[in-house]
């Protein structure tokens, strides 16, 4: 097991979450806006090819947070354009992220069948 890789993933993934926490505590941005901002930022950095350096460095530490989802959308769109032309810009993003989207819907549905929403602890 590559312990150094695990450490890098922890540090990068953790740093992304720290940015989110600071935005919650120090700004008036709602959680929904912060999430959208993370996806958008990931898409821009992915489209410019910058996010790939972060993935090469930290693996899941960069792909699992929401910025990784944004990166996947833009990377998928760019590569599909190469295969199918202009229409690929609309196909590629969702195609690349399809496993994540479909499993979120599927497991979300399963969770709604077997559990009940609860009050927050704090």
């Amino acid at each position: 097991m590559d312990w150094f890789m695990i450490l890098k993933a922890f540090l990068v993934g953790g740093a992304i979450c720290v940015i989110g926490q600071i935005l919650i505590d120090k700004t008036k941005l709602t959680p929904a806006r912060i999430l959208v901002a993370f996806v958008t930022l990931g898409a821009i950095l992915g489209g410019l090819g910058i996010y790939q350096y972060l993935i090469d460095f930290a693996g899941c530490g960069a792909t699992v947070p929401l910025t990784g989802f944004g990166n996947l959308l833009s990377k998928g769109a760019i590569s599909e354009v190469k295969d199918s032309g202009f229409i690929g810009a609309f196909i590629g993003g969702v195609k690349a992220a399809s496993a994540g989207i479909a499993s979120a819907v599927f497991f979300g549905y399963i969770a709604s069948l077997i559990s009940k929403p609860k009050i927050k602890k704090q």
Binding site: I24, P31, A32, P117, K118, I119, K120, Q122
Partner: peptide
Amino acid sequence: HFCSAEKQFRFPLELGNQRPP
């Protein structure tokens, strides 16, 4: 009621988002 108000005015409780200070 905390849960009905949170759901209507803020976010679904299922989202589990943090509340600001």
